[in-house]
Simulated assay, not measured.
Amino acid sequence: MKITEEFALEFAQEWISAFNAHDLERVLSHYSADFVIKSPVAARLLDLQDGVVSGKEAVRAYWIRALEKMPDLHFELLDVLVGTDGLTLYYLNTGSGKKTAEVMTFNGQGLVCQVAAYYG
């Protein structure tokens, strides 16, 4: 899938809105069933050496746990960077004051299939 600037901005606004609403089903609707996320937060919360969580159901369980630990989670979008088959969301977690970049790769159906998260 070729990512356009318009698609990237619309996706970013919807993704941030869904996370800020803590609407996990809405967030997950943007991901393929077999997507993989690599995150230092997953490594810490799930005691995973490599921080890799594979598959939508495993990620659902991870995000449920994360939202339980951070009930006031709220993101502020800072920037969206566009690539050929993906995008990077750069945002601020207003609760912690930490910045995050999530590099997302999309499959041919327009769903996120791979994510790498980086934290400030």
Results as ranks from 00 to 15, higher is better:
Glu57Pro: 12
Gly51Ala: 12
Ser29Cys: 11
Glu76Ala: 13
Asp85Cys: 01
Glu76Thr: 13
Ala18Ile: 03
Cys113Trp: 00
Glu25Val: 08
Val82Thr: 13
Pro71Val: 12
Trp63Phe: 15
Val36Ser: 08
Leu111Gln: 08
Leu48Trp: 06
Ser96Trp: 03
Val27Phe: 02
Ala101Val: 03
Glu5His: 06
Gly86Met: 03
Leu81Val: 13
Leu78Gly: 10
Gly86Ile: 03
Val103Pro: 00
Val52Phe: 02
Thr88Glu: 02
Arg60Val: 08
Gln49Thr: 09
Val52Gln: 14
Ala18Val: 03
Leu9Phe: 12
Ala58Ser: 08
Glu25Tyr: 06
Leu9His: 14
Tyr91Trp: 09
Ser96Met: 03
Thr100Phe: 02
Gly120Glu: 12
Arg65Thr: 04
Asn93Gln: 05
Lys69Val: 10
Tyr91Ile: 07
Asn20His: 08
Glu68Ala: 12
Leu77Pro: 07
Val80Cys: 07
Thr88Ile: 11
Ala117Arg: 04
Asp47Lys: 09
Lys56Pro: 00
Tyr90Leu: 12
Met104Leu: 08
Thr88Gly: 07
Leu92Asp: 12
Ile3Asp: 01
Asp50Met: 07
Leu48His: 08
Ala58His: 06
Tyr90Asn: 09
Ala117Ile: 08
Asp85Glu: 11
Ala42Ile: 12
Val82Ile: 14
Trp15Tyr: 15
Phe19Leu: 09
Phe35Asn: 00
Glu10Asp: 11
Arg26Asn: 13
Asp34Leu: 01
Gly83His: 14
Lys98Thr: 07
Lys98Val: 08
Val41Phe: 10
Thr84Asp: 07
Asn93Met: 04
Thr88His: 00
Val52Ser: 12
Phe35Ile: 00
Gly95Thr: 15
Asn93Ala: 04
Gly51Pro: 14
Thr84Tyr: 04
Phe106Asp: 05
Val36Thr: 13
Val80Phe: 08
Gly108Ser: 03
Asn93Cys: 04
Val52Thr: 15
Ala117Gln: 06
His74Thr: 06
Tyr90Phe: 11
Met70Asn: 15
Leu78Glu: 13
Pro71Tyr: 10
Ile16Asp: 07
Val41Leu: 12
Asp85Thr: 12
Ala66Leu: 09
Lys2Leu: 01
Phe7His: 02
Glu76Val: 13
Ser39Asn: 05
Leu73Ser: 06
Tyr91Met: 10
Gly108Lys: 01
Val59Phe: 14
Lys38Asp: 06
Thr4Asp: 05
